[in-house]
């Protein structure tokens, strides 16, 4: 089955000379949830905005369900819904008025029943006559999602959908995204949060400094990202690892004052508990134990520094 979004050789250099995107090739599969990860300024929003028609690509082509986003923009754009990163609403308008506008501007005829369903699904129905200005930040975020869904898009872009929202709303949004995917909508979301990608995505793409450096199934990527480190501060420096622990993923740090154990918490085996027992049995004394997980930033740095 052909991809629902096909990006080929897309680049973007802004008038200032800043190259936001180096040639990007990317296929989004039909019906998947694709998470585009990257630090601030990596090019995530530029790529999404090009696909949605908000930014003009310097070169390359984008097809949405086989339709060129420039040449066949009417069909292509009618298939796409966008929730941008920045909160942008018509504050003085009511939720209902802005929904009607969004549906109409995307070329759809009136369908109050559908709009009601969208608002009910997003717990906004009782706010339909409220001016958007009077809503809380979380409610406004819901309104933006409702607007993006108002014309029944087949492809939904969510640019940082959970940035700055509380835990409850984040969980609600995740549930909503899953239910949309179940109804056949393809979802592309950008996020800073590994947890979000882990929870939601079928596949993950990593973009950094305008380059798409990785596109992988979530399961495979999470295997790589899901490492943890247990750091033991030793009571006295060791000259070497006890023979009993040779072969374990252990290494010294801080001039031999720390022992670092890299492990996968989901892996089967004796894990942290077994390691500590064996260290005590081997007579290794330590004064502190702490654990840490790899941050997304560290993973990006690692990916960027890795030879091509």
């Amino acid at each position: 089955m052909p991809p629902i979004i096909s990006v080929r050789g897309v680049t973007k250099t802004y008038a200032s000379g800043f190259q936001a995107l180096k040639p990007i090739d990317l296929d989004i599969r039909r019906g998947e949830i694709f998470a585009l990860l990257g630090p601030n300024g990596a090019g995530k929003s530029t790529l999404i905005n090009i696909i949605c028609g908000l930014v003009r690509a310097s070169s390359g082509t984008v097809l949405a369900d086989g339709y060129d986003i420039v040449r066949d923009y009417r069909v292509a754009r009618s298939l796409i819904g966008l929730v941008p990163q920045e909160m942008a609403t018509e504050g003085y308008e009511t939720v209902w008025a802005t929904m009607k506008f969004s549906r109409g501007v995307h070329g759809r005829g009136r369908d109050p029943a559908y709009l009601e369903k969208v608002l009910r699904d997003l717990s906004l129905w009782d706010k339909k006559d409220s001016p958007i200005l009077a809503l809380s930040g979380g409610m406004k975020r819901r309104v933006m999602i409702a607007k993006a869904l108002s014309h029944q898009p087949r492809i939904l872009f969510l640019d940082e959908p959970t940035a700055g929202v509380d835990v409850e709303l984040r969980r609600d949004l995740w549930a909503m995204v899953r239910s949309l995917r179940d109804s056949g909508v393809t979802i592309i979301l950008t996020t800073h949060y590994i947890e979000e990608a882990e929870e939601m995505a079928d596949r993950v793409g990593v973009i950094n400094r305008g380059e798409l450096i990785l596109v992988e199934d979530k399961a495979a990527l999470m295997r790589d990202l899901g490492t943890r480190q247990l750091i033991l501060t030793l009571a006295a420096p060791l000259s070497g690892l006890p023979a009993d622990l040779a072969g374990e993923p252990l290494h010294f740090a801080d001039d031999g004052l720390s022992l670092v154990y890299t492990f996968d918490p989901k892996a089967e085996g004796e894990g942290v508990e077994g390691l500590i027992r064996r260290l005590i049995d081997a007579g290794v004394a330590f004064t502190d134990i702490r654990s840490r997980e790899s941050s997304l930033e560290e993973i990006f740095v690692g990916l960027v520094r890795a030879p091509a």
Binding site: G53, R74, R77, I80, L82, A88, V105, H106, G107
Partner: peptide, 8 residues
């Protein structure tokens, strides 16, 4: 953004 990304 809505106008610019719409089929208009």
């Amino acid at each position: 953004y809505e106008l610019l990304s719409a089929p208009v």
